[in-house]
Amino acid sequence: MTAKAISQEERFYQLIDKEEKIEPKDWMPEKYRNTMIRQISQHAHSEVVGMLPEGNWISRAPSLRRKAALLAKIQDEAGHGLYLYSAAETLGADREELIEELHIGKAKYSSIFNYPTLSWADIGAIGWLVDGAAIMNQVMLCRTSYGPYSRAMVRICKEESFHQRQGYDILLTLCNGTKEQKEMAQDALNRWWYPSLMMFGPKDDESVHSDYSIKMKIKRFSNDELRQRFVDATVPQAEYLGLKVPDKNLKFNAKTENYSFTEPDWSEFYNVIKGNGPCNKDRIKTRREAFENGKWVRDAAIAYAEKQKQNNKNGKQ
């Protein structure tokens, strides 16, 4: 290693120590670069695939106001995917390759989006629980050590709090409605509770990338810490709705001010990650078809742009 490379490396670790951000053109260890690309692209894929379970309900939203809000939320998710893909590109990743990895099943995305949305209450539960869990994670990531990722997270968090509130608002309305509506809300909570707890990833002692991420200040809290915070924040919200969290062992510990709770079924988690969840194949098929069916549009736009350039060169308007 040359003298210059050593000083670059030292500089990198100094920046991390001093809580300064790493920026795209800075020297960085390959492991850091690859970890960032993996995490940011998985996050981008999650935003994009995350549109699908909700898209299922746009045409069936119960009112124009609900439909407009749901459309706005889904549009935000498309935007969040775009912020994140461009953040990944600052690390030298190729967007088309990242998308290809999603389409061939090589890249992961949040396992939660492999569950089906069976009723309108599921849209409420997704906003409240899934976006709530995502926010818990993303608020932490606003302070991540990689500048472009951190900036994208700040924007995303600003936009996402409306998502959680609109979800809760849907459930609040259902829970103040008829007996059937309240049962629908309870059923949604029953199905989404454990998958939401899984969103924070495996238990700390089984999490492969955690140590490095904490050391490099990519993450600030462990999976289990975030999961605990989520449970503590969410249980009182469920109580306010008059709904029951589907966990017989849920108990408030007055001394620690934490809830003790039952862990999700981790074999289910790993099974869904492996591709065997209820909707994995359908999600990827939908994404792939959208990409393939849009190819002619992308090609036509390029052809048009090239023709315009040629015309301008030739002095035509």
Binding site: Q75, G79, L82, Y83, S86, A87, E89, T90, R95, P148, R151, A152, R155, R298, A301, I302, Y304, A305, Q308
Partner: peptide, 18 residues
Amino acid sequence: GSLRASDAQMAIENARDV
């Protein structure tokens, strides 16, 4: 931030949306 677009006009329109 950044985004992809086929030409400048589309970049402005996409930036509006993103």
